[in-house]
Design a protein around this nucleic acid. Structure first.
Lengths: 209, 209
DNA sequence: AAGAATAAATACCTATAGGTACGATAATGA
DNA sequence: TCATTATCGTACCTATAGGTATTTATTCTT
């Protein structure tokens, strides 16, 4: 976490890696990863362009590093919730609270960087894309194991575990999309609550026809 | 629809508006609207750049026109289904069939241009954005009125009409996302079938806790 | 035949993206 | 003191984006 580990030799480093990383993450998150250039980051942080390239190799490297920061900041907490051993209904509530918490008061942009990057994946470099797929696979696995756990606890759904996980993933992505479009967190929470409880309903529902 | 309506004066038009429109639409749809340049379209169709600009004014104009084509080609059929007066369950099936039909055999790309444009909306010009919002609003209204109709027919859900419509919109977008990511249409249909039937279930479901 | 009107295409423009060459600078070790 | 090591930042490079000035070609009207 600290700036330098080895008491090094040459000219002391002035470049603030952490500042750049934070700024880049916020910019990507707010404006979308494809709408932020290295030049923007330089202007924003006062860093020189070669400095940024020295530190992160290239655009792809910076995006990848920012994405890693995002993972620990915004994805890991959700994984922790999904992997908790609390009853399913509590897990649902915790997940919904986390997803729909007020971003503004936390100084964090609306929406989800994963979702944005996925939507613009054709514009990403290879290492960012790799990282993105890794994180998304982890998240999907978390949904999958959540569903499996629910089944062990007696919750059944009509769908295969895999398909239920896909369904849950859709709800999450949908929530992030709604949030980004300015829909109130209360509305989003209502929709999510409905959608999640559906997936974990105990018995086959009474269907039309 | 025809090339020239008034038997006009000057040098006869060589530029094939329709070819450009079709090519542009397919390119946007396949690669994402931000990953296709006017130059690409020119190379693809053999048109000259000033020719394209004469016809569509600018990049924004071309994208807007392509989006209009998309609307009549891919959105209107869904609107027709949603506004049909068939029983809800039949409407559900029809919508799912339409959404998950095999694109390859129809010579049409996977995914949804509306969804892609929405995801990249910061990179769109004003008139394309306007058109996009118009079409999306129409689609949302269709979902909304579908839900209202279902309620008249005795189908109830826990959610307000507006929130149910948001939920349905999410399922549709989610389906398009899955399709674009290569998930089989059968799986998508299963997920959609589950999600839609949930929204239109007759009674409050048996919930956990 | 002489405009008037329209479309053609080459060759250009500006802005900005990602990326780097290179000389200057600041520390350490001998 | 002087090489060594490593970072600094100005000024540049190439590629490509959107967009256009200009000249030439082809038609209809008078």
């Amino acid at each position: 976490m600290s700036q330098n580990q080895t008491p090094l030799r040459g000219r002391p480093k002035k470049l603030d890696r952490n500042l750049i990383l934070q700024s880049a993450l916020m910019e990507y998150w707010t404006k979308g990863p494809s709408n932020v250039s290295i030049n923007d980051i330089c202007k924003l942080t006062g860093a020189s362009k070669p400095g940024v390239y020295r530190e992160f190799s290239n655009d792809d490297g910076l995006k990848k590093s920012a994405l890693e920061t995002y993972q620990t900041l915004a994805v890991q907490p959700l994984l922790d919730i999904l992997y908790s051993d609390k009853p399913i209904s509590e897990t649902i509530d915790a997940a919904i609270s986390f997803i729909t918490q007020d971003r503004k008061s936390m100084g964090v942009p609306n929406g989800c960087l994963l979702v944005m990057m996925t939507a613009q994946s054709e514009q990403l470099g290879s290492s960012t894309l790799e990282e993105l797929n890794r994180i998304r696979a982890n998240l999907f696995t978390a949904y999958f194991s959540w569903v499996k756990r629910a089944k062990l606890e007696g919750e059944l759904s009509d769908l295969e575990t895999n398909e239920t996980a896909l369904y849950l993933e859709n709800q999450h992505i949908g929530a992030m999309r709604m949030q980004r479009e300015g829909i109130s967190n209360e509305t989003i929470a209502n929709v999510l609550n409905f959608a999640f409880k559906m997936a974990f309903s105990k018995k086959p529902k009474l269907l039309l026809n």
